[in-house]
Design a protein around this nucleic acid. Sequence first.
DNA 1: AAAAATACGGAACAATCATTCCTGAATTGT
DNA 2: ACAATTCAGGAATGATTGTTCCGTATTTTT
Lengths: 193, 193
Amino acid sequence: MARTKEFNEDQALDKAIEIFWHKGYNGTSAQDLVTHLGLSRSSLYDTFGDKQKLFSKALNKYQSDNYVKIKELLETTSNVKETLTVIFKLAVVESLEDRITKGCFMVNSAVELAMHDEEIAKIVSSNQKVMEEVFYAAVKKGQEAGQISTKNEARLLARFIFNTYSGIRVLARAGEKDKQVYDDILKAMFTLF
Amino acid sequence: MARTKEFNEDQALDKAIEIFWHKGYNGTSAQDLVTHLGLSRSSLYDTFGDKQKLFSKALNKYQSDNYVKIKELLETTSNVKETLTVIFKLAVVESLEDRITKGCFMVNSAVELAMHDEEIAKIVSSNQKVMEEVFYAAVKKGQEAGQISTKNEARLLARFIFNTYSGIRVLARAGEKDKQVYDDILKAMFTLF
DNA sequence: AAAAATACGGAACAATCATTCCTGAATTGT
DNA sequence: ACAATTCAGGAATGATTGTTCCGTATTTTT
């Protein structure tokens, strides 16, 4: 009995991710959202509630999309070490190509909001946990296959991988464009494997 | 022929560092500054210009204070590896004790502002350079003294140290309070030395 | 003591913020 | 055709933003 929505909610969320990722939560105005999402004010508020709820949904989608992608890459590969290289080199390429250096939406949000917004803190904290688990499983698999050194515990390496990832995302956000810097960091990390 | 300032500009800057560090640039209002610095609006604007200039000065002071501290620690020590341990363990203790998890003012500012504010971008970028040099000199000294392995180049290790530092500061900002996580990361890093 | 300069608190400013509401048009299922 | 729902666009909301200005008090130098 009703008119159907003319926009795709998921596509709108992707647009929201883009703008929030680029400008941050506080830096993005309601007008920015209207302009970038291509929705009217009324549709926007009717569909997503308010700015904070929209941000929450966007960050959740971002984490889910990325989590699934990395999880599948690591679970389906027969060579974990090689796949880790691919994942990190991709992050480097993204950081270098990024004309508007966005870094990582999750890292940005953690730094900007985690301590002031409980909802966001939960998402960030949960992301840390599940990413650590993905890396843990991957490292363990790699160690059992003899691709990764067993000199260090899998748990330790998993945390270390995640930390290095956060670091290079900060570098990227800070605008670092020297590939050698990233390569050095990756080379150092892979020395441990 | 004039009345002297009743407040110490450096102390006021320290207060500004505190509040900006805690709430970020966009999250800190002019009222927050008036309240926290204990100055009147007029004095604040007469002394520091505007919010952006005050932030700039605060961030510069923060970087200078920290840079000098770490530089001296590393230059005067006879055991570089040990001093690096001290520096990183201190960062961990700070992260754990921090009731209001502030992370690192420089990392926070890099993530929030570097891509939108050229002035801040310069400070962040300069900080990266000089910190890398400090770590580079330290690693080189440590390698010559036989305290640090020469298996990896000093430049590479310096960049890697800085990156790991950024990472744990993000962790701290995200509210991580499990000491074991930090210890694992440090242990992994020190494996390379 | 007079003059000059600054600090001070608070009022006032225009701009922007997130959010709500209203209008009229468009599209759907019954 | 009718009722229901959603659309776009913009006006209007009240709150908060960063910043300026004013009158008064205070301290310094001459």
